[in-house]
Design a protein around this nucleic acid. Sequence first.
DNA 1: GTTGAAAAAACAGAGGA
DNA 2: TCCTCTGTTTTTTCAAC
Lengths: 149, 149
Amino acid sequence: MDHIDKQILFHLQKQARISMTELGKAVALSQPAVTERVRRMEEQGIIEEYRTILSPEKVGKGAAAYMLFRTRDCHAFLDFIQTSPDVIECHRISGEHNYLLKVMTDSTRSLEEFGNQCDKYGTYTILIVMSSPIDHKFLIPMLDQASER
Amino acid sequence: MDHIDKQILFHLQKQARISMTELGKAVALSQPAVTERVRRMEEQGIIEEYRTILSPEKVGKGAAAYMLFRTRDCHAFLDFIQTSPDVIECHRISGEHNYLLKVMTDSTRSLEEFGNQCDKYGTYTILIVMSSPIDHKFLIPMLDQASER
DNA sequence: GTTGAAAAAACAGAGGA
DNA sequence: TCCTCTGTTTTTTCAAC
């Protein structure tokens, strides 16, 4: 993965539907060349997938929260959260809690309801997300000239 | 937003580069019809953007952690994390901590280093992510027949 | 890696159910 | 609002360099 690959990824990150022709212009390469590079990075698994990002508010997921969870029965717990449409993420973490969940619903009222459903799996702390100063930063930052070599 | 729109979004979520023609086939609609629906949802802000998802491991971000932060000087803190390439997310949360950060680096060693840089902004607890049973669940789930009406 | 031409596909528009 | 049909543009593929 050289500098041009990183440049390609930088552009693709936030414009997944860009055409190979346009992408070629952006990185000063011919279209067949970028197409081949993208194909190779897909094959290598560097590029995992192309996602469409929806507005949480406009699809009824305007309320977000994190939950620090402590459970004894990991298996039953995982089964539950896999099927719950409100659980967007689940991470196994170090520390006194087992899991960190990200939950999204239409309102804090629904968050509370979700909490009720969780009661039987263990104890938890809910952290309501009031705002997200950084919702998502891209993994590949814009490249300066110095890093070209 | 009707049932067909949701079906369209369902497909777009994980295949942002699909063509309108193919998408039309998937939802049993003609190409001009889906194109128009997608255009409208972009305009309405339901569709926010199209992203390419990269493999964290393969771009040198194999180690992830969450940080529960408590700071007094929010302004200086936000300035700092905005510019740090390791901070992928930042959420303002309720509870005894101000912020929840998601940090990604190449190793736990780098996480430690990042922690050192944070010391001057306040106190924090690091939660190392050991695995992610659910890294990301899509906001629009697959639709069953019953929800068609 | 480049260009350039041919083939395939996708898209945008018009008219009509 | 959707469909079909058509013309145009874009993209891809495949050569040769």
